[in-house]
Amino acid sequence: MAVVLTAEEALEKAAKLILAGNPVAVPTETVYGLAADATNGEAVARIYDVKGRPRFNPLIVHVSDMEMADAIGEFDPLSRLLAEKFWPGPLTLVLPLKKSAQIHPLVRAGLDTIALRMPTGFISRLIARVGRPLAAPSANSSGRISGTSAAAVNADLGARIALVVDGGPTPVGVESTIVKSEGGRLRLLRPGGLAAEEIEAVAGVKLERGRKAGLEAPGMMTSHYAPGAKVRLNVTEIARGEALMAFGPARAKGAEGAKAVCNLSPKGDPHEAAANLFSMLRELDATGAAVIAVEPIPAEGLGEAINDRLRRAAAPRDIDGISA
């Protein structure tokens, strides 16, 4: 298994591994990421190999400041406004790639755009320490449940990497929101840890939904975040022996016969539910139940991101043309 060090003691060891071309599992405010030097093709290839991620699925590049971001992506006024308001934080912007950007082509998976995010916490300090942008998808086997704790990451990837940095449970709990600006219009490519309503309030325009053909950004695979169990959504009645992912104070019919119950938020708070989503999905999967039944969760605010992740967890595992 990997060495696990606290964020307070891991910076120099993590920097040494990154500069040597190795991926490191690190905490972010959203979920744990598998970080490597975005300018080094061998390092980026190791991310794909460790995760078992298909190489047509691009990666988010993380930066420590706007100077680094400006060296990589072309910001239009609307994208810059969002960066100024929400960075550092759980927002990823899809931008045209600057021709002079020193980002390895493997990161982009053939696209002429780049997905950029400025995170908080340990990963930001690590980027500043190595002086290079880091590609960092979620630290989990491709298609499986994202890790929101060092223990979950080590159990999944620990045999394939040298270091897991333990920053405690991630506070947001779901991946970043991905937005693309196109001629004064904004398109939501993936809902996430920043609610669409907050973005719209700053931008002054509505976020458009709907995807084009192919993958435009990381995190757009139809089947993703999947446990071993099947996932059944928006249930109003539980079959005996199913595991129950509950939400709010009222229970679905038959809940007393569930094999196990985890309540994302007894008080119905979407922020609490988002923070608990992946850890509770993992906990219910570990019970050995064949099915995880999920009570309805309102789609407003962070509920949009929660429902997005649950729909992908419930999708057929070969829907994107690969095995999850």
Rank of each mutant, 00 (worst) to 15 (best):
G228C: 11
G41V: 10
I72G: 01
G110C: 07
P96V: 09
T222K: 15
P266H: 05
A25D: 07
Q102H: 15
N40L: 08
A201I: 13
R209Q: 13
E304L: 12
S141M: 12
A109M: 04
A38Y: 04
S142G: 05
L264S: 03
K85N: 10
A275V: 10
D308Q: 10
A203F: 08
T148N: 05
D166M: 03
A217V: 08
S142I: 11
A45L: 14
G301D: 14
L134T: 00
I103G: 03
L189K: 05
A43I: 09
I199M: 01
L17F: 05
E272D: 09
T236S: 11
A314V: 11
L189N: 00
T39C: 09
V294T: 00
P54T: 01
P249A: 04
G168S: 07
I322S: 11
L97P: 01
A43H: 10
L244V: 09
N22G: 13
R311E: 08
P316F: 05
L97E: 02
A196H: 08
E300T: 14
A36H: 02
F122K: 01
L189E: 02
R125G: 03
Q102N: 14
T287W: 09
A229H: 08
A252W: 12
A139K: 04
I292C: 04
A196S: 06
V153F: 07
K212L: 15
D76Q: 09
G210V: 11
L284R: 08
Q102W: 14
N234H: 13
A10M: 07
V50F: 08
A150L: 05
R311C: 03
M68G: 01
S146Y: 01
A243C: 05
V63S: 04
K51S: 00
V50K: 09
A43K: 11
A196D: 06
H62P: 08
A2M: 12
A136W: 04
L189T: 00
P105N: 12
G73F: 02
T236P: 00
L19C: 10
P171D: 01
M280N: 13
P171F: 08
R125I: 10
A290L: 12
L81A: 05
G173H: 04
R232D: 02
K212T: 14
F56V: 10
P77S: 07
L194A: 00
N263V: 07
A159E: 14
E175R: 06
E237A: 12
G73C: 00
L34Y: 11
L215M: 15
S142N: 10
N263A: 05
P169I: 15
L93N: 02
G219Y: 02
V205P: 03
R209T: 13
S124Y: 15
V107H: 06
R185N: 12
F56S: 11
T92S: 06
A201Y: 12
P218E: 03
I123G: 03
A217W: 04
A258Q: 02
S124L: 15
P58L: 05
M280I: 13
E12C: 09
V205F: 01
G52K: 11
